[in-house]
Amino acid sequence: MANERVLIVDHNDQQRKYLTELLTSKEYQTIEATTCEDALEILSRNTIDLILTETELPSKSGLFLLKEAKEALPDIEVILITSNASSFNVLQALRNDAYDFIVRPIDTGEILFNTLDRAFYTIQLRRHNATLVKELEEKNRYLTRHLKMMQALNESIEQVNSANEIEELLLGLLTSAMAALGSQRGFIALYDKSGEKLAIKAGKGIPADLIQQCSTRMPSGFTTEAVKRGKPVVVNSVFPKKLLSMASETERNGLLAGPGLLAAPLEFKGRNVGIIVLSQQKKGLAYGDTELNFLIQLAHHAAMALEKAGTIYQLKRKSKQ
């Protein structure tokens, strides 16, 4: 009972102290109030699980407290105690959603404790159900997001596979990935034939001058290091200090932007040929494993499509000779 807090409301000192002693003997946490107004003030400043109140209070009644408490805190339980068990009082209590109604005298406390046990069981059951509902909602959101990602991946793969020109393929790949993942900046960088120079071949949402600066060779920084390591990267919020220290001045000046970053290497025949990097996720979104897996799968299909586009390009050149 250590975490269960009961607000005891009674203007009669003897009756209130007696109730407090009964409840503390069962290890309930208790807070006392003598009036309806004091009780409402306590409710506004404290977390209370249950109210145990006398119906006859100075100024405003326990029934008024019941109504006000339920309007402010719908999940709180209220048990009324009275010496006047009139049908009117009982009816008013039930109409205002009181948990129960106890008639004095309270001698051994058996009835009170049974009522409290039932009330707290109801509270615990409600909280447990709320937790289950929240978990189910979270799982549904994840499944819905995952399904959308799968659908977007299939559509993106179709677009990538239908492209015959390398420029068309890269731009289509970047556009599809950014739209599906809610990214506002992105670029694709590829190595030249020597495998030494990494340069941007397609970019979106990035200042044109920065893309131009990196169109022949990217300065050493996060991107070049990520390609060398050949491992995907996911950052779901602000950039960590390690990434910022690794980033080049060009990357810090707008090539990359937070919050969030995804990077997936482009692999072809066992070697890294480039990388796709997305950043600055839209408000309300967060990159995670689902988004990273999407980009990895898309990068895999893009690498195969690049091979096809390169083969077509070579065939076209031969046919012109």
Rank of each mutant, 00 (worst) to 15 (best):
F64K: 10
F64M: 09
L65V: 03
L65N: 02
L65A: 05
K67Q: 09
A69G: 04
A69T: 04
K70V: 13
E71C: 05
E71R: 08
A72S: 08
A72C: 04
A72W: 00
L73G: 02
L73V: 12
D75N: 11
D75T: 13
I76E: 12
E77I: 14
V78Y: 07
I79H: 01
I79R: 07
I79M: 03
L80C: 00
L80Y: 01
I81H: 00
T82S: 11
S83D: 04
S83G: 06
A85L: 01
S86L: 07
S87V: 15
V90H: 05
V90A: 14
Q92D: 09
A93L: 03
L94N: 13
R95G: 10
R95I: 04
R95P: 10
N96G: 04
D97M: 13
A98W: 02
Y99R: 13
I102M: 03
R104I: 00
I106T: 06
I106V: 09
G109Y: 07
G109L: 05
E110Q: 13
I111T: 07
L116N: 06
D117H: 15
F120G: 13
T122L: 10
Q124K: 15
L125W: 07
R127Q: 15
R127I: 07
N129D: 04
N129M: 07
A130G: 02
T131L: 12
K134P: 03
K134R: 06
L136E: 06
E137V: 11
E138I: 02
K139C: 05
N140D: 10
N140L: 14
R141V: 08
T144E: 10
R145A: 12
H146G: 02
A152N: 14
A152F: 14
L153S: 08
N154W: 01
E155L: 08
E155F: 04
S156E: 07
I157Y: 01
E158K: 08
V160G: 00
N161F: 09
N161W: 03
N161I: 14
A163Q: 07
A163M: 08
N164T: 12
E165A: 11
E165K: 11
I166R: 06
E168P: 02
L170P: 05
L171D: 02
